[in-house]
């Protein structure tokens, strides 16, 4: 059975929805950060899927280039987010997102 662009689109949408649940429902900052990294990965699936199934037509695989950038952005978000979480944890002593609303500079 052949796999088309719509298969990648649906998979990407499901991964996005699951990760969105993690971002909204997680109370621990680290686990929310991990869910955010997964959220960033969802468009990557659609982008390379469209390119590989010919969704981009006969032009250059700009979807692949965008996927490459999305991966770099996801990695950057994860490491900067980790730095921010460590910094806030040192100031507040908690990883609870609900308590971060009281953090002041």
């Amino acid at each position: 059975m052949n796999v088309g662009p719509v298969h990648y689109a649906v998979l990407s949408g499901l991964v996005f929805a699951l990760a969105l649940y993690g971002v909204l429902a997680r109370r621990n900052a680290l686990q929310a950060l991990v869910a955010l990294a997964l959220l960033f990965s969802a468009p990557v699936i659609a982008l390379f899927g469209f390119v590989q199934t010919g969704g981009g037509g006969s032009g250059p695989p700009l979807g692949g280039a965008l996927a490459f950038f999305a991966i770099i952005a996801m990695a950057s978000e994860a490491v900067v987010g980790l730095g921010v979480v460590l910094l806030i944890w040192r100031r507040t002593g908690t990883g609870d997102i609900d308590e971060y609303v009281e953090v002041e500079g």
């Binding site: 699951l18 971002v23 109370r27 621990n28 908690t94 990883g95 609870d96």
Partner: peptide, 20 residues
Amino acid sequence: IAPSSPATSRRWWIGAAVAG
């Protein structure tokens, strides 16, 4: 850091509704 707070929020159902 990881064990310093509950993993899931009490209002997880809002996230579940939005994600669904």
